[in-house]
């Protein structure tokens, strides 16, 4: 199946949860926040959130800005 992460298509095995995806992306430990299809997913739900075909994720962090 395919999902979109930060605007880019990404192939993914079925039944992958959000925590597994983050580990694949080497973001497992990072200070990040996630929107799944426009809704924020709290960190406590990463493990139980199973990604679906065509899901769209936004993964953000804090960077320098004024």
């Amino acid at each position: 199946m395919n999902i979109v992460v930060n605007g880019k298509p990404q192939a993914l095995e079925a039944q992958t949860n959000l925590q597994q995806l983050l580990e694949n992306l080497q973001l497992g430990q990072g200070r990040i926040a996630i929107e799944l299809n426009g809704e924020i997913v709290p960190r406590s739900l990463f493990q139980q959130t199973i990604l679906q075909n065509d899901d769209s994720l936004e993964i953000v962090q804090a960077i320098g800005g004024g």
């Binding site: 930060n6 200070r31 993964i59 953000v60 962090q61």
Partner: peptide
């Protein structure tokens, strides 16, 4: 601070 998309794949070990 600003809120922006993470860089994926590249520079994933750069300091936050």
């Amino acid at each position: 601070v600003a809120i922006r998309r993470v860089n994926m794949g590249q520079n994933s070990d750069e300091p936050n």
